[in-house]
Amino acid sequence: MDRKKTRFGIQAVALLIQNANFRGFLTGRIYEGASKSVCVPGLNCYSCPGAIGACPLGSLQSHLASMKFKFPYYIVGFLIFFGAVLGRAVCGFLCPFGFFQDLLYKIPFYKKNRFKIDKFLRYLKYAVLAVLVLLLPITCNLIPFFCKYVCPSGTIAGIWLAAADSNIRSVLGPLFSWKLILLLIFIVLGLIIRRPFCKYICPLGAIYGFFNKVSLYRMTVDRDKCVNCGACARACQMNVDPAKNPNSMECIRCGECIDACPHKALHMGFAAGSKKTAVVAEANENGDQKV
């Protein structure tokens, strides 16, 4: 099985496992079992009728927004654990909303991944993380700002709940309309740009990005094989140059660069590449062109 199909299969299984309460989609009732005390790795709203785990971002904001501030050891522990093991491979393999965007991008439509303000927009997700996820929930008690005003995963959950429950339909208001418009914008952008939410908005991707350089799951470049042809950079739809920066904070580990490399110089995995190639790649990341 090729890499794309394997990744698609893992994404589909991850989506099903994280939303295994299938009956909830019909009844409009969310799951109330003990597994909801465990954080899932990706962006999957805990109010989704299918969700059997807790969204790490929602839990983090809810904890920070509580009346008595206590450091969220448990949730931060989960985030560091997933980050240190997988880095942004979570985005590429396990995140249900990332999978949703990948499916959207498969729809034939006008595509444009490279444009001038792309690099500038990348910084937006760090601002979203700092302000909406951390700062405002701490300072303005009881409001999980990112979940309330931005999170499209929650909007999808809201659509499911509203479709299944007339009581919820009757209380829909301006906030739901705002979130629905935002979701529609992400959907339209998702048809044109590969994973716009992950690239520009997602605070969870911003967190996992910090771990990409040190995570166990990583990419290495074999400098003996790499001829700097640029095929990997052209294939990358997250606009990373894997030959220069194989463990970029933006890399979601989709592996399309590996398939595009005509010299098989890129390797990815928990023990990617030989010791020599790993050392060479790390030296290259530190700024040395040739070792």
């Binding site: 003990a34 465990v38 805990y46 206590k70 906030l175």
Partner: peptide, 29 residues
Amino acid sequence: LIVIGIILQQPESVLNKAVRICMECVGLG
């Protein structure tokens, strides 16, 4: 950190939040 969180009973607060419909998350206010 996870162990410290468990000792401080933080999984219970995660569970309490996650088993109720989050009105803000789904856009109900």
